[in-house]
Simulated assay, not measured.
Amino acid sequence: MFRQLYNWVMSLAARKSAEVWLAVIAFVESSVFLIPADVLFVPMALSKPERAYRYALIATVASVLGGIAGWALGYFAYETVAKPILSFYGKLDAFEHMKSYVDDRWILILLMTSGLAHLPPIKIVTILSGVVHMSLPLFILSAVIARGARFYVLAFLIAKYGEPIREFIERRLSQLFAAVAVVAVGAYVGLKLVVLH
Score class of each variant (00 low, 15 high):
V144A: 07
N7Y: 13
L116V: 05
V189M: 03
P137C: 05
F139H: 01
L191S: 09
V182E: 02
V24D: 03
V132T: 05
T126N: 03
Y53K: 03
F156W: 13
Y6C: 11
V102L: 09
I85P: 03
Q175K: 15
S174D: 12
A26F: 14
S129P: 06
I85N: 02
A56V: 01
A23N: 13
W8R: 11
A179F: 06
G67A: 12
I165E: 00
I35D: 03
F177W: 01
D93L: 13
L173G: 00
L119H: 14
K16G: 12
L196Q: 15
W106F: 13
G186C: 05
R147N: 09
A56H: 03
F168R: 04
G186S: 02
A178H: 07
A14W: 15
G90H: 01
A146K: 02
F2S: 15
N7D: 13
F76C: 14
F27Y: 07
K16A: 12
P49D: 04
V9F: 08
D103I: 11
R147L: 09
A82K: 00
L108H: 06
I107F: 11
A26D: 14
S135T: 03
L157T: 12
L65K: 10
H118N: 14
K83W: 04
V32K: 00
Y161H: 12
L128S: 10
S142T: 05
R166L: 01
M112N: 11
L46V: 05
F168K: 04
V61I: 03
I109E: 12
A18F: 11
A146Q: 02
T60L: 02
M98V: 08
V132E: 01
A14M: 15
I165Q: 01
S63P: 04
F88Y: 13
H118I: 14
L65G: 06
K83R: 14
E170T: 10
F95S: 10
L40Q: 08
G70Y: 00
P43D: 13
P43V: 02
F95A: 05
K91F: 13
A184P: 06
I124C: 11
L108P: 08
F139C: 09
A149C: 15
F95V: 04
F151L: 08
I124G: 11
A69F: 04
